[in-house]
Design a protein around this nucleic acid. Structure first.
Lengths: 235, 235
DNA sequence: TTCAAACTTGTTGTGTACATCATGCCCATC
DNA sequence: GATGGGCATGATGTACACAACAAGTTTGAA
Protein backbone atom coordinates (compact mmCIF):
# COMPACT_ATOMS: atom_id res chain seq x y z
CA UNK A 1 0.00 0.00 0.00
CA UNK A 2 2.98 2.27 0.50
CA UNK A 3 3.36 2.89 -3.22
CA UNK A 4 -0.31 3.74 -3.50
CA UNK A 5 0.05 6.13 -0.60
CA UNK A 6 2.29 8.22 -2.75
CA UNK A 7 -0.06 8.26 -5.70
CA UNK A 8 -2.93 9.04 -3.35
CA UNK A 9 -1.25 11.82 -1.41
CA UNK A 10 1.03 13.58 -3.87
CA UNK A 11 -1.58 15.58 -5.68
CA UNK A 12 -0.25 19.02 -6.49
CA UNK A 13 0.83 18.63 -10.07
CA UNK A 14 3.97 20.50 -11.10
CA UNK A 15 3.40 23.67 -13.06
CA UNK A 16 5.06 23.83 -16.46
CA UNK A 17 6.95 27.08 -15.93
CA UNK A 18 7.80 26.39 -12.31
CA UNK A 19 11.31 27.25 -11.22
CA UNK A 20 13.57 24.71 -9.56
CA UNK A 21 13.34 26.66 -6.31
CA UNK A 22 9.56 26.79 -6.58
CA UNK A 23 9.28 23.06 -7.14
CA UNK A 24 11.54 22.26 -4.23
CA UNK A 25 9.54 24.57 -2.01
CA UNK A 26 6.28 22.88 -2.98
CA UNK A 27 7.69 19.38 -2.50
CA UNK A 28 9.09 20.17 0.93
CA UNK A 29 5.84 21.87 1.93
CA UNK A 30 3.68 18.94 0.86
CA UNK A 31 5.99 16.43 2.50
CA UNK A 32 6.08 18.14 5.89
CA UNK A 33 2.36 18.85 5.74
CA UNK A 34 1.77 15.15 5.14
CA UNK A 35 3.89 14.22 8.12
CA UNK A 36 1.92 16.59 10.32
CA UNK A 37 -1.42 15.38 8.99
CA UNK A 38 -0.50 11.70 9.47
CA UNK A 39 0.80 12.37 12.99
CA UNK A 40 4.38 11.49 12.15
CA UNK A 41 4.81 14.90 13.75
CA UNK A 42 2.10 14.93 16.42
CA UNK A 43 0.76 18.12 18.03
CA UNK A 44 3.21 19.53 20.56
CA UNK A 45 6.24 17.98 18.90
CA UNK A 46 9.25 20.24 18.49
CA UNK A 47 10.88 20.20 15.08
CA UNK A 48 14.50 21.22 14.55
CA UNK A 49 15.16 23.41 11.54
CA UNK A 50 18.71 22.17 11.31
CA UNK A 51 17.75 18.50 11.49
CA UNK A 52 15.06 18.91 8.84
CA UNK A 53 17.41 20.90 6.60
CA UNK A 54 20.01 18.17 6.88
CA UNK A 55 17.49 15.44 6.16
CA UNK A 56 16.28 17.14 2.98
CA UNK A 57 19.78 18.14 1.92
CA UNK A 58 19.19 21.89 1.93
CA UNK A 59 20.35 24.71 4.14
CA UNK A 60 18.16 26.30 6.77
CA UNK A 61 17.18 29.25 4.58
CA UNK A 62 14.92 27.53 2.03
CA UNK A 63 13.60 25.20 4.71
CA UNK A 64 12.61 28.11 6.91
CA UNK A 65 10.50 29.45 4.06
CA UNK A 66 8.54 26.20 4.13
CA UNK A 67 8.12 26.33 7.91
CA UNK A 68 6.92 29.94 7.70
CA UNK A 69 4.33 28.93 5.14
CA UNK A 70 3.11 26.11 7.37
CA UNK A 71 3.01 28.58 10.26
CA UNK A 72 0.82 30.91 8.17
CA UNK A 73 -1.45 27.92 7.50
CA UNK A 74 -1.78 27.34 11.22
CA UNK A 75 0.06 24.01 11.39
CA UNK A 76 3.27 25.21 13.07
CA UNK A 77 4.29 27.83 15.62
CA UNK A 78 7.86 29.11 15.93
CA UNK A 79 9.16 30.59 19.18
CA UNK A 80 12.66 31.97 19.46
CA UNK A 81 14.78 30.10 21.95
CA UNK A 82 12.28 27.25 22.19
CA UNK A 83 11.69 25.70 18.79
CA UNK A 84 9.17 25.11 16.06
CA UNK A 85 6.14 23.38 17.54
CA UNK A 86 3.36 21.46 15.81
CA UNK A 87 0.17 23.23 16.82
CA UNK A 88 -2.77 21.65 18.53
CA UNK A 89 -6.29 22.90 17.96
CA UNK A 90 -8.87 23.60 20.64
CA UNK A 91 -12.48 22.56 20.34
CA UNK A 92 -13.67 26.11 19.73
CA UNK A 93 -11.43 26.75 16.74
CA UNK A 94 -12.22 23.25 15.47
CA UNK A 95 -15.92 24.06 15.53
CA UNK A 96 -15.39 27.32 13.65
CA UNK A 97 -13.41 25.58 10.93
CA UNK A 98 -16.05 22.88 10.57
CA UNK A 99 -18.83 25.46 10.37
CA UNK A 100 -16.96 27.18 7.57
CA UNK A 101 -16.26 23.92 5.75
CA UNK A 102 -19.92 22.98 5.85
CA UNK A 103 -20.79 26.28 4.17
CA UNK A 104 -18.11 25.82 1.51
CA UNK A 105 -18.86 22.26 0.43
CA UNK A 106 -22.14 23.12 -1.35
CA UNK A 107 -20.21 25.69 -3.37
CA UNK A 108 -18.40 22.84 -5.08
CA UNK A 109 -21.42 22.46 -7.36
CA UNK A 110 -22.16 26.18 -7.66
CA UNK A 111 -18.82 27.85 -8.45
CA UNK A 112 -17.25 26.78 -11.75
CA UNK A 113 -17.70 23.01 -11.34
CA UNK A 114 -16.05 20.73 -13.85
CA UNK A 115 -18.15 18.13 -15.61
CA UNK A 116 -17.27 14.80 -14.06
CA UNK A 117 -14.91 12.94 -16.37
CA UNK A 118 -14.29 9.18 -16.63
CA UNK A 119 -10.98 9.84 -14.86
CA UNK A 120 -12.89 11.31 -11.94
CA UNK A 121 -15.15 8.27 -11.78
CA UNK A 122 -12.16 5.97 -11.82
CA UNK A 123 -10.57 8.01 -9.07
CA UNK A 124 -13.53 7.46 -6.77
CA UNK A 125 -13.69 3.79 -7.70
CA UNK A 126 -10.04 3.38 -6.72
CA UNK A 127 -10.71 5.20 -3.49
CA UNK A 128 -13.58 2.87 -2.70
CA UNK A 129 -11.37 -0.14 -3.38
CA UNK A 130 -8.80 1.27 -0.97
CA UNK A 131 -11.56 1.70 1.56
CA UNK A 132 -12.56 -1.93 1.30
CA UNK A 133 -8.95 -2.97 1.83
CA UNK A 134 -8.88 -0.64 4.79
CA UNK A 135 -11.88 -2.20 6.53
CA UNK A 136 -10.17 -5.60 6.25
CA UNK A 137 -7.06 -4.20 7.88
CA UNK A 138 -8.03 -1.02 9.72
CA UNK A 139 -5.39 1.45 10.84
CA UNK A 140 -5.47 5.06 11.86
CA UNK A 141 -2.81 5.97 9.35
CA UNK A 142 -4.48 4.14 6.51
CA UNK A 143 -7.75 5.84 7.35
CA UNK A 144 -6.09 9.22 7.19
CA UNK A 145 -4.42 8.52 3.86
CA UNK A 146 -7.73 7.63 2.23
CA UNK A 147 -9.48 10.51 3.97
CA UNK A 148 -6.99 13.05 2.60
CA UNK A 149 -7.06 11.55 -0.87
CA UNK A 150 -10.85 11.66 -0.86
CA UNK A 151 -10.76 15.32 0.01
CA UNK A 152 -8.49 16.07 -2.94
CA UNK A 153 -10.68 14.07 -5.30
CA UNK A 154 -13.64 16.21 -4.27
CA UNK A 155 -11.82 19.54 -4.19
CA UNK A 156 -10.42 18.96 -7.68
CA UNK A 157 -13.97 18.98 -9.07
CA UNK A 158 -14.11 22.78 -9.03
CA UNK A 159 -12.04 25.04 -11.25
CA UNK A 160 -12.59 27.96 -8.87
CA UNK A 161 -9.09 28.33 -7.46
CA UNK A 162 -9.95 30.59 -4.52
CA UNK A 163 -12.55 28.07 -3.41
CA UNK A 164 -10.20 25.13 -3.84
CA UNK A 165 -7.36 26.81 -1.95
CA UNK A 166 -9.63 27.84 0.90
CA UNK A 167 -11.10 24.38 1.26
CA UNK A 168 -7.63 22.83 1.24
CA UNK A 169 -6.36 25.24 3.87
CA UNK A 170 -9.28 24.54 6.17
CA UNK A 171 -9.21 20.80 5.59
CA UNK A 172 -5.58 20.46 6.64
CA UNK A 173 -6.21 22.52 9.74
CA UNK A 174 -8.50 19.79 11.04
CA UNK A 175 -7.37 16.64 9.21
CA UNK A 176 -4.97 15.49 11.92
CA UNK A 177 -7.47 15.89 14.74
CA UNK A 178 -9.22 12.64 13.88
CA UNK A 179 -6.19 10.49 14.54
CA UNK A 180 -5.62 11.89 18.00
CA UNK A 181 -6.82 9.66 20.81
CA UNK A 182 -8.74 7.14 18.76
CA UNK A 183 -9.20 3.68 20.26
CA UNK A 184 -9.01 0.62 18.03
CA UNK A 185 -12.77 0.45 18.22
CA UNK A 186 -13.04 4.06 17.06
CA UNK A 187 -10.71 3.40 14.16
CA UNK A 188 -12.80 0.43 13.04
CA UNK A 189 -15.98 2.49 13.22
CA UNK A 190 -14.47 5.45 11.38
CA UNK A 191 -13.07 3.20 8.65
CA UNK A 192 -16.51 1.74 8.05
CA UNK A 193 -18.04 5.19 8.05
CA UNK A 194 -15.45 6.42 5.54
CA UNK A 195 -16.15 3.38 3.38
CA UNK A 196 -19.85 4.22 3.19
CA UNK A 197 -19.00 7.85 2.54
CA UNK A 198 -16.69 7.06 -0.35
CA UNK A 199 -19.23 4.61 -1.78
CA UNK A 200 -21.79 7.41 -1.83
CA UNK A 201 -19.32 9.67 -3.61
CA UNK A 202 -18.47 6.96 -6.11
CA UNK A 203 -22.12 6.36 -6.96
CA UNK A 204 -22.87 10.06 -7.35
CA UNK A 205 -19.74 10.53 -9.46
CA UNK A 206 -20.70 7.66 -11.76
CA UNK A 207 -24.06 9.37 -12.26
CA UNK A 208 -22.21 12.58 -13.10
CA UNK A 209 -24.25 14.32 -10.41
CA UNK A 210 -21.95 16.92 -8.91
CA UNK A 211 -24.80 18.55 -7.02
CA UNK A 212 -25.44 15.29 -5.20
CA UNK A 213 -21.71 15.00 -4.51
CA UNK A 214 -21.61 18.44 -2.95
CA UNK A 215 -24.58 17.81 -0.70
CA UNK A 216 -23.30 14.39 0.31
CA UNK A 217 -20.03 16.04 1.22
CA UNK A 218 -21.78 18.55 3.41
CA UNK A 219 -23.83 15.84 5.10
CA UNK A 220 -20.79 13.68 5.83
CA UNK A 221 -18.79 16.66 7.07
CA UNK A 222 -21.64 17.52 9.40
CA UNK A 223 -21.85 13.94 10.65
CA UNK A 224 -18.09 13.88 11.29
CA UNK A 225 -18.33 17.05 13.32
CA UNK A 226 -21.21 15.62 15.36
CA UNK A 227 -19.31 12.41 16.13
CA UNK A 228 -16.28 14.46 17.11
CA UNK A 229 -18.34 16.62 19.45
CA UNK A 230 -19.96 13.57 21.04
CA UNK A 231 -16.55 12.05 21.60
CA UNK A 232 -15.25 15.30 23.10
CA UNK A 233 -18.28 15.55 25.39
CA UNK A 234 -17.81 11.96 26.56
CA UNK A 235 -14.24 12.64 27.68
CA UNK B 1 -6.99 63.34 6.15
CA UNK B 2 -3.58 61.66 6.29
CA UNK B 3 -3.82 61.11 10.03
CA UNK B 4 -7.23 59.52 9.62
CA UNK B 5 -5.82 57.28 6.94
CA UNK B 6 -3.71 55.67 9.57
CA UNK B 7 -6.57 55.12 12.00
CA UNK B 8 -8.68 53.81 9.15
CA UNK B 9 -6.15 51.44 7.64
CA UNK B 10 -4.08 50.15 10.55
CA UNK B 11 -6.53 47.61 11.84
CA UNK B 12 -4.70 44.49 12.97
CA UNK B 13 -4.44 45.01 16.70
CA UNK B 14 -1.21 43.84 18.36
CA UNK B 15 -1.48 40.59 20.24
CA UNK B 16 -0.46 40.72 23.88
CA UNK B 17 2.09 37.90 23.79
CA UNK B 18 3.43 38.80 20.36
CA UNK B 19 7.18 38.65 19.94
CA UNK B 20 9.17 41.61 18.67
CA UNK B 21 9.91 39.71 15.47
CA UNK B 22 6.25 38.83 15.05
CA UNK B 23 5.14 42.43 15.49
CA UNK B 24 7.73 43.71 13.04
CA UNK B 25 6.66 41.09 10.52
CA UNK B 26 3.00 42.09 10.83
CA UNK B 27 3.76 45.80 10.55
CA UNK B 28 5.91 45.37 7.46
CA UNK B 29 3.31 43.06 5.91
CA UNK B 30 0.45 45.51 6.49
CA UNK B 31 2.49 48.44 5.25
CA UNK B 32 3.56 46.83 1.98
CA UNK B 33 0.08 45.39 1.44
CA UNK B 34 -1.32 48.90 1.85
CA UNK B 35 1.10 50.28 -0.70
CA UNK B 36 0.09 47.60 -3.18
CA UNK B 37 -3.61 48.12 -2.53
CA UNK B 38 -3.35 51.90 -2.92
CA UNK B 39 -1.31 51.55 -6.12
CA UNK B 40 1.80 53.12 -4.62
CA UNK B 41 3.19 49.90 -6.03
CA UNK B 42 1.09 49.38 -9.17
CA UNK B 43 0.74 46.01 -10.94
CA UNK B 44 3.85 45.14 -12.93
CA UNK B 45 6.15 47.24 -10.75
CA UNK B 46 9.41 45.60 -9.77
CA UNK B 47 10.34 45.91 -6.12
CA UNK B 48 13.93 45.61 -4.91
CA UNK B 49 14.41 43.56 -1.78
CA UNK B 50 17.56 45.46 -0.92
CA UNK B 51 15.94 48.88 -1.35
CA UNK B 52 12.94 47.91 0.75
CA UNK B 53 15.15 46.39 3.43
CA UNK B 54 17.17 49.58 3.60
CA UNK B 55 14.06 51.75 3.77
CA UNK B 56 12.64 49.80 6.71
CA UNK B 57 16.00 49.49 8.43
CA UNK B 58 16.18 45.70 8.39
CA UNK B 59 18.26 43.19 6.49
CA UNK B 60 16.95 41.24 3.55
CA UNK B 61 16.16 38.14 5.61
CA UNK B 62 13.16 39.36 7.64
CA UNK B 63 11.95 41.41 4.69
CA UNK B 64 11.98 38.39 2.42
CA UNK B 65 9.69 36.61 4.85
CA UNK B 66 7.17 39.41 4.33
CA UNK B 67 7.52 39.25 0.55
CA UNK B 68 7.02 35.47 0.62
CA UNK B 69 3.84 35.90 2.62
CA UNK B 70 2.54 38.46 0.13
CA UNK B 71 3.47 36.07 -2.65
CA UNK B 72 1.44 33.33 -0.97
CA UNK B 73 -1.46 35.80 -0.80
CA UNK B 74 -1.19 36.35 -4.54
CA UNK B 75 -0.04 39.99 -4.43
CA UNK B 76 3.60 39.47 -5.44
CA UNK B 77 5.58 37.14 -7.69
CA UNK B 78 9.32 36.59 -7.30
CA UNK B 79 11.46 35.46 -10.22
CA UNK B 80 15.14 34.79 -9.83
CA UNK B 81 17.28 37.10 -11.90
CA UNK B 82 14.36 39.41 -12.64
CA UNK B 83 12.89 40.76 -9.42
CA UNK B 84 9.81 40.77 -7.26
CA UNK B 85 6.85 41.91 -9.34
CA UNK B 86 3.48 43.21 -8.19
CA UNK B 87 0.95 40.86 -9.75
CA UNK B 88 -1.85 41.88 -12.03
CA UNK B 89 -5.09 39.93 -12.13
CA UNK B 90 -6.91 38.77 -15.22
CA UNK B 91 -10.64 39.10 -15.66
CA UNK B 92 -11.20 35.35 -15.22
CA UNK B 93 -9.51 35.13 -11.84
CA UNK B 94 -11.20 38.37 -10.81
CA UNK B 95 -14.59 36.84 -11.58
CA UNK B 96 -13.78 33.72 -9.57
CA UNK B 97 -12.76 35.76 -6.54
CA UNK B 98 -15.90 37.87 -6.73
CA UNK B 99 -18.09 34.78 -7.03
CA UNK B 100 -16.48 33.43 -3.90
CA UNK B 101 -16.79 36.72 -2.03
CA UNK B 102 -20.49 36.91 -2.86
CA UNK B 103 -20.99 33.49 -1.32
CA UNK B 104 -19.01 34.40 1.79
CA UNK B 105 -20.65 37.71 2.66
CA UNK B 106 -23.98 36.18 3.79
CA UNK B 107 -21.99 34.00 6.19
CA UNK B 108 -21.16 37.14 8.16
CA UNK B 109 -24.57 36.86 9.82
CA UNK B 110 -24.58 33.05 10.05
CA UNK B 111 -21.18 32.08 11.49
CA UNK B 112 -20.52 33.37 15.01
CA UNK B 113 -21.64 36.98 14.45
CA UNK B 114 -21.00 39.51 17.18
CA UNK B 115 -23.85 41.61 18.46
CA UNK B 116 -23.39 45.07 17.04
CA UNK B 117 -21.94 47.32 19.72
CA UNK B 118 -22.12 51.12 20.02
CA UNK B 119 -18.49 51.17 18.92
CA UNK B 120 -19.47 49.40 15.72
CA UNK B 121 -22.23 51.94 15.07
CA UNK B 122 -19.81 54.78 15.65
CA UNK B 123 -17.35 53.16 13.29
CA UNK B 124 -19.87 53.15 10.44
CA UNK B 125 -20.93 56.71 11.27
CA UNK B 126 -17.32 57.85 11.00
CA UNK B 127 -16.97 55.98 7.73
CA UNK B 128 -20.04 57.71 6.35
CA UNK B 129 -18.66 61.09 7.40
CA UNK B 130 -15.43 60.27 5.56
CA UNK B 131 -17.53 59.34 2.54
CA UNK B 132 -19.25 62.69 2.53
CA UNK B 133 -15.88 64.45 2.69
CA UNK B 134 -14.77 62.23 -0.16
CA UNK B 135 -17.64 63.20 -2.47
CA UNK B 136 -16.71 66.85 -1.94
CA UNK B 137 -13.13 66.15 -2.89
CA UNK B 138 -13.08 62.89 -4.83
CA UNK B 139 -9.85 61.00 -5.40
CA UNK B 140 -9.00 57.46 -6.35
CA UNK B 141 -6.75 57.06 -3.36
CA UNK B 142 -9.27 58.47 -0.91
CA UNK B 143 -11.91 56.16 -2.34
CA UNK B 144 -9.67 53.18 -1.80
CA UNK B 145 -8.84 54.13 1.78
CA UNK B 146 -12.52 54.30 2.74
CA UNK B 147 -13.30 51.18 0.75
CA UNK B 148 -10.66 49.16 2.60
CA UNK B 149 -11.70 50.56 5.98
CA UNK B 150 -15.32 49.68 5.25
CA UNK B 151 -14.33 46.13 4.47
CA UNK B 152 -12.57 45.79 7.82
CA UNK B 153 -15.53 47.27 9.68
CA UNK B 154 -17.75 44.61 8.14
CA UNK B 155 -15.32 41.70 8.48
CA UNK B 156 -14.76 42.48 12.16
CA UNK B 157 -18.43 41.72 12.84
CA UNK B 158 -17.81 37.99 12.86
CA UNK B 159 -15.77 36.14 15.47
CA UNK B 160 -15.28 33.22 13.09
CA UNK B 161 -11.57 33.57 12.39
CA UNK B 162 -11.37 31.25 9.37
CA UNK B 163 -14.17 33.21 7.74
CA UNK B 164 -12.59 36.56 8.55
CA UNK B 165 -9.17 35.52 7.29
CA UNK B 166 -10.58 34.11 4.07
CA UNK B 167 -12.63 37.23 3.36
CA UNK B 168 -9.60 39.42 4.01
CA UNK B 169 -7.40 37.37 1.74
CA UNK B 170 -9.90 37.52 -1.11
CA UNK B 171 -10.68 41.18 -0.59
CA UNK B 172 -7.06 42.25 -0.92
CA UNK B 173 -6.65 40.17 -4.06
CA UNK B 174 -9.16 42.42 -5.82
CA UNK B 175 -9.06 45.69 -3.88
CA UNK B 176 -6.46 47.35 -6.07
CA UNK B 177 -8.22 46.51 -9.34
CA UNK B 178 -10.71 49.33 -8.90
CA UNK B 179 -8.10 52.04 -9.02
CA UNK B 180 -6.64 50.84 -12.28
CA UNK B 181 -7.71 52.83 -15.31
CA UNK B 182 -10.43 54.90 -13.70
CA UNK B 183 -11.28 58.22 -15.34
CA UNK B 184 -12.13 61.21 -13.16
CA UNK B 185 -15.75 60.63 -14.06
CA UNK B 186 -15.50 57.03 -12.93
CA UNK B 187 -13.94 58.10 -9.65
CA UNK B 188 -16.76 60.54 -9.00
CA UNK B 189 -19.38 57.92 -9.74
CA UNK B 190 -17.68 55.28 -7.59
CA UNK B 191 -17.32 57.70 -4.68
CA UNK B 192 -21.03 58.43 -4.78
CA UNK B 193 -21.79 54.75 -5.00
CA UNK B 194 -19.56 54.02 -2.02
CA UNK B 195 -21.26 56.81 -0.10
CA UNK B 196 -24.68 55.26 -0.59
CA UNK B 197 -23.26 51.86 0.26
CA UNK B 198 -21.76 53.04 3.52
CA UNK B 199 -24.95 54.91 4.40
CA UNK B 200 -26.87 51.65 4.01
CA UNK B 201 -24.38 49.88 6.27
CA UNK B 202 -24.59 52.66 8.85
CA UNK B 203 -28.37 52.50 8.97
CA UNK B 204 -28.42 48.72 9.28
CA UNK B 205 -25.72 48.85 11.95
CA UNK B 206 -27.68 51.42 13.97
CA UNK B 207 -30.65 49.06 13.86
CA UNK B 208 -28.41 46.27 15.10
CA UNK B 209 -29.50 44.21 12.09
CA UNK B 210 -26.47 42.15 11.11
CA UNK B 211 -28.54 40.02 8.75
CA UNK B 212 -29.45 43.12 6.78
CA UNK B 213 -25.78 44.17 6.80
CA UNK B 214 -24.70 40.85 5.37
CA UNK B 215 -27.26 40.92 2.58
CA UNK B 216 -26.51 44.53 1.76
CA UNK B 217 -22.88 43.59 1.53
CA UNK B 218 -23.63 40.82 -0.92
CA UNK B 219 -25.81 43.11 -3.00
CA UNK B 220 -23.19 45.84 -3.19
CA UNK B 221 -20.44 43.35 -3.97
CA UNK B 222 -22.56 41.98 -6.78
CA UNK B 223 -23.24 45.47 -8.12
CA UNK B 224 -19.52 46.29 -8.01
CA UNK B 225 -18.73 43.18 -10.01
CA UNK B 226 -21.38 44.04 -12.57
CA UNK B 227 -20.05 47.59 -13.02
CA UNK B 228 -16.54 46.21 -13.37
CA UNK B 229 -17.64 43.73 -16.04
CA UNK B 230 -19.50 46.42 -17.97
CA UNK B 231 -16.42 48.61 -17.89
CA UNK B 232 -14.24 45.72 -19.04
CA UNK B 233 -16.65 44.92 -21.87
CA UNK B 234 -16.71 48.57 -22.97
CA UNK B 235 -12.94 48.65 -23.41
C1' DT C 1 19.22 21.29 52.98
C1' DT C 2 17.54 24.89 50.10
C1' DC C 3 17.53 28.31 46.88
C1' DA C 4 19.29 31.37 43.66
C1' DA C 5 22.61 32.80 40.38
C1' DA C 6 25.65 31.58 36.76
C1' DC C 7 26.57 28.49 33.12
C1' DT C 8 25.68 25.19 29.38
C1' DT C 9 23.10 23.81 25.64
C1' DG C 10 20.07 24.14 21.96
C1' DT C 11 16.78 26.83 19.51
C1' DT C 12 15.05 30.46 16.30
C1' DG C 13 16.12 35.37 14.43
C1' DT C 14 19.35 38.30 11.79
C1' DG C 15 22.99 39.87 8.84
C1' DT C 16 25.99 39.07 5.05
C1' DA C 17 28.78 36.98 1.46
C1' DC C 18 28.36 34.29 -2.44
C1' DA C 19 25.86 31.43 -6.20
C1' DT C 20 22.64 31.46 -9.84
C1' DC C 21 20.04 33.49 -13.20
C1' DA C 22 17.88 36.99 -16.52
C1' DT C 23 18.44 41.13 -18.98
C1' DG C 24 20.32 44.75 -21.66
C1' DC C 25 24.35 46.86 -23.54
C1' DC C 26 28.45 46.85 -26.29
C1' DC C 27 31.28 45.46 -29.81
C1' DA C 28 33.04 42.49 -33.23
C1' DT C 29 31.73 40.23 -37.33
C1' DC C 30 29.26 39.36 -41.49
C1' DG D 1 24.04 48.56 -41.42
C1' DA D 2 22.30 44.48 -39.26
C1' DT D 3 23.08 40.78 -36.19
C1' DG D 4 24.77 37.67 -32.89
C1' DG D 5 27.74 36.63 -29.04
C1' DG D 6 30.09 38.00 -24.90
C1' DC D 7 29.97 40.60 -20.82
C1' DA D 8 28.58 43.77 -17.22
C1' DT D 9 24.96 44.50 -14.07
C1' DG D 10 21.55 43.75 -10.88
C1' DA D 11 18.07 40.74 -9.27
C1' DT D 12 16.59 36.68 -6.28
C1' DG D 13 18.17 32.03 -4.18
C1' DT D 14 21.36 29.78 -0.94
C1' DA D 15 24.61 28.97 2.68
C1' DC D 16 26.70 30.10 6.84
C1' DA D 17 28.27 32.70 10.88
C1' DC D 18 26.65 35.05 14.66
C1' DA D 19 23.10 37.32 17.90
C1' DA D 20 19.18 36.83 20.92
C1' DC D 21 16.73 34.05 23.68
C1' DA D 22 14.69 30.19 26.70
C1' DA D 23 15.19 26.18 29.45
C1' DG D 24 17.66 22.87 32.03
C1' DT D 25 21.90 22.05 34.93
C1' DT D 26 25.37 22.92 37.98
C1' DT D 27 27.41 25.13 41.74
C1' DG D 28 27.92 27.90 45.50
C1' DA D 29 26.53 30.24 49.65
C1' DA D 30 23.09 31.03 53.12
Amino acid sequence: MEQDDITLLRLSEPDANESAAGRRFRELHDEIRSRISLLDYPPGMRLSEEALAEEFGVSRTPLRRVLWQLQAEGLLQSVQGVGTIVTDIDIGALYQVYQMRMELSPLLARLSPRTISPQDMKRFKVLHKKCLELTDNPSARGYSVVNIATFHALADLTTNEPLRETMERLFYQTARIWLKSLTDQDVMRECKSLCQEVRDYRDAACLGDIDALAHLWRAHTSASMTRLQQKAAAQ
